[in-house]
Amino acid sequence: MFMQRVYILYIVMAAWLKGEAPRASATRGIDSAAKNLGYEFLEKCRKNGFKTAYVERPEALASVFSEWAAHWSIKSLMIAGLSGFLKETIFNALISVKKEITCLELPDLPSDLTLFRASSLGVFRVYAGVAETGGLIVLDDWGSNLASLIPEYTVGLLEAGEVVSDYWALTSVLRQRDIGGMVIISGPSSTSDIELTHVIGVHGPVEAGVIVTGFELDE
């Protein structure tokens, strides 16, 4: 118990020193309640039109990406906000099913983003999930914003402990962080503007996935 408190204090202090608010997992840990909330969140995401998966171990990520990518036409990949180990895991999983994949580095000043658009997969770090509505919170950093918006296919990753119950749980986050902006993604881009027929894939991703992990992503 004492060690757990020390650990939480360490995470909070580290975040404070970096000028960030602590993530939900830092104060909650990934316990069974968090896992259940994670499942509830994924169920809602599924209803919203996301592909969904829950993985307990980093190695299991590979099989989810291989399975999903088998159905997608992907030639390039961009990853934002994930560690080198996870990047490598995802890239290896993809080349196991798609022989030719280019991993694109997210440049600071891209003049033409077309390269990132068609036949492309964006993988990004989700700040928090909202269980009640199946929403993925993406903070306004350049990489995550692009990776979750421009490519044809996108996958967001978050830890089970980062799922909150509803929007109101975000109030403190919004007040603590001096954020320029934020987006809550609750499904692939869609429209019903022509005869109210629902069509997926307008200006944003055509397919979107979300993976909740039972392990810490930033280790």
Partner: peptide, 9 residues
């Protein structure tokens, strides 16, 4: 329950 995107500007 929610639209696909809620953008906070």
């Amino acid at each position: 329950d929610a639209t696909s995107y809620i953008t906070v500007i």
